[in-house]
Amino acid sequence: MAHSHHDEGHGHGHHGFAHVMPVPLLLTVFFVLLGLTWVTTWVSANVPLGSYELIVSMGIASVKAGLVMAFFMHMIHEKPFNIAIVFFSLVFVALFVGFTLHDKFEYKDQETEAVYDQIRLEQAK
């Protein structure tokens, strides 16, 4: 992980190792984010999407997250290793959610209202 190798590609001029984001870019990203927030709220209030709602709103959220990461968090200029660790952390989150959720799906039918009722009633006595 030698530093000099990674930095050569970007050409950072007189600012040393800093990657300066142009103001118009920041402003554009901000207004896009604001627009997406408005869209997702409006859709939620006015468009009955049913089961697609989850996908749509999480999709919009992920686009927003992507914009924040890429531009506000300077990921487009980041070292590949730093991007990789964030990516891998998400892989581990996916593992965590995936395995646990799959397990829950497998046995959730064993949990019946009857069990709760029985416990509730017995505790009421």
């Binding site: 581990f92 593992l95 395995f99 799959h102 397990d103 497998e106 046995y107 064993q110």
Partner: peptide, 20 residues
């Protein structure tokens, strides 16, 4: 990170997950 469920083979974890 992939093997935590082997502490739960008899815990009420689903058999499918136990096998995995």
């Amino acid at each position: 990170f992939l093997v935590w469920g082997h502490h739960m083979f008899t815990s009420g974890q689903s058999p499918a997950m136990s096998v995995i």
